[in-house]
Design a protein around this nucleic acid. Structure first.
Lengths: 343, 343
DNA sequence: GTCGTTCCTTGGATCGATCAAGGGGATCGG
DNA sequence: CCGATCCCCTTGATCGATCCAAGGAACGAC
């Protein structure tokens, strides 16, 4: 067993292994990093010594020499409570596992809410991380240009909406395709008056999702005027918006930019004694926990967050290899989790 | 501005700063780590140079020399989807911020689901982290004894249920106090037949929460026989359990070990056309997002996760200081988020 | 002028791994 | 028998900060 018993205070070093195996330090180093350079029998001998001593290379020393930390920075944004970023969980977990497969660990950091660059600078200058995964790109992406100018490797979860010419690596989910799926699903169910409740116009993501609904409706020559609403991403706003739409436009179905808004719609329908799922269909976005546990279940667009994580790590792997391999943008398609709220 | 323009490839070193400030390396090091040793005016001069060059000490070098990484390992467990670990988000975020205040960053790692020790060993041996925060302690805590034997500093979120004699630092939330709050709240509302739906007997946490309900009922000499049920933590199980209880024991209120189970109760009530919140009261546990967005809102016990994070970091600070300060166990009290589901 | 502070410098060693050359032994052709 | 050529392994320097110990310059007190 690994260094049992004795004080665990000083882990074995490369030199200890070397002595035990009767070889030089460099040979041990090679055994770890370039095994093919060793004769098979010495390799075995060294590996045995490594196992017996329970040796793992000291990270700090390795990092110092190789000028790499094998850490990837991830900004853990202040979660606005009530928002459906519970999905973050699914995402981060896959990220951790995938990164580990490539020999990387995730380093979490935070920064002031209002400063999008907060935290990045320090980590970069102290060479604490090799690269970043940037996820806070709802409204533009100043981090991207800044990081690029710093020559810091990074991959973004989110398209460079405000700068289509950007050449950095990114991965995103096709929101429009998601709402198109949702809308077509409702059309298949026989609905024709399908309303949209989304976010305010300054949200790139919101407008993207809206466009999927819009184009699908237009493709069937269905009316959309008066059937759309743009509000804050809260349950109360969704409820209010649904109420107005029900009064004025009499839709038989709703597609929403988020599960939060969809929950608002369910409230509004409940207020009027309308049986949702039977009388009026509702589809949300994000496939949050809420969508899954609400009675009957809420049909919702599900983002392939696991795939996103995998693609992000793949892209990072390219950037961090020598020579770096530039990664193109990747756009993934969401799926639809169908439940009773859509009939 | 910090090293603008030129290649960002080689960040400035201590020696660069020393030269620019016209002092020795040692003095710069002191300016950073022991400012009180410098005369005020030289300190300013050095700090100016640091700012001008945009210097941050190289982490790897510092880590190597000081034998510390200023990283704290946190195992990011495979999230069983549907469980209310959306709360993790709130917790982790505070953890990140609080740790940063003490100069620490969080390192995420994962391990095989079945092996509770997975991942810890490697990080420890390669001196990649200074300490761990252990959160996966639902069923016993083998990590604790293992880490203790390795002399690895760590703090646990969760009491050492299976080993009351354990001396390591821990922080936990008083689940019994939470369900007591919930039960008393219902008693105040006039309910006397209050049912319990919890987890199976092998869950320490589940039994703890159950005991809060039990002792409160007994304190008022109210019957509890036939009013309790122990099931899996799923919506379906909660629904089924509630259904049986409604038939056989006719409770007017439910206290549940989780929001998931509480959602199951709401389903069961909905099935029978019982208006929950008016006819029958329901209280959940965790104050998850679901509790907040369900129509009318689900009354739920809220864990002070932010406080937990703060206490964990405080305890770690003690363990990592020299000399180490042993931290006692800390038990925090939850609060009750009252919403319409309890009338 | 001597002694003692205070503040900073100097030169070195050190942490543990990797990089870049260099060296010993076997093998082979001449 | 000698030198060229591999192959496999070793040697010394290096990454950048910190620790250590000794020493020098300026200043005030006696």
């Amino acid at each position: 067993m690994a260094w049992s018993g004795r004080l665990a205070l000083t882990p074995p070093t490369l030199a200890d292994v070397a002595e035990r195996a009767g070889v030089s330090r460099q040979t041990v180093s090679n055994a770890v990093n370039n095994p093919e350079l060793l004769r098979p029998d010495t390799l075995v001998r060294v590996q045995d010594a490594i196992a017996e001593l329970g040796y793992s290379p000291n990270r700090a020393a390795r990092n110092l020499r190789t000028r790499a930390s094998h850490l990837i920075g991830l900004k853990f944004n202040p979660a606005q409570e009530g928002t459906a970023n519970a999905a973050m969980d699914r995402f981060v977990h896959t990220l951790v596992e995938t990164a580990a497969d490539s020999g990387y660990h995730l380093l979490l950091f935070s920064g002031s809410t209002d400063d999008p660059l907060g935290g990045y600078d320090d980590l970069l200058r102290s060479t604490a991380v090799d690269a970043f995964i940037v996820t806070d790109t709802y409204l533009g992406n100043p981090q991207a240009t800044w990081l690029t100018s710093r020559r810091a490797p990074f991959v973004a979860f989110g398209r460079p909406w405000d700068n289509p010419g950007a050449t950095h690596a990114w991965v995103d989910v096709d929101g429009a395709a998601g709402t198109q799926l949702a809308t077509e699903h409702l059309l298949d169910k026989g609905h024709t008056r399908i309303a949209w409740i989304g976010w305010r116009k300054d949200s790139f993501i919101g407008e993207d999702r809206r466009s999927g609904w819009l184009r699908t409706m237009h493709a069937r020559d269905l009316a959309t005027t008066g059937l759309a609403s743009r509000v804050e991403d809260t349950v109360a706003s969704g409820r209010e918006a649904a109420s107005v739409l029900l009064d004025e436009a009499h839709p038989s179905a709703f597609v929403c930019a988020s599960d939060t808004l969809a929950m608002g719609v369910l409230h509004a329908l409940g207020d009027r004694g309308i049986h949702w799922g039977r009388d009026v269909a509702v589809v949300g976005f994000d496939d949050s926990q809420v969508a899954q546990v609400v009675p009957g279940g809420l049909t919702s667009v599900r983002q392939p967050l696991e795939e996103v994580a995998v693609e992000l790590v793949r892209a990072l792997g390219g950037l961090l290899s020598t020579p770096p391999v530039a990664a193109p943008g990747v756009l993934l398609s969401p799926t639809l989790a169908v439940r009773l709220s859509s009939g």
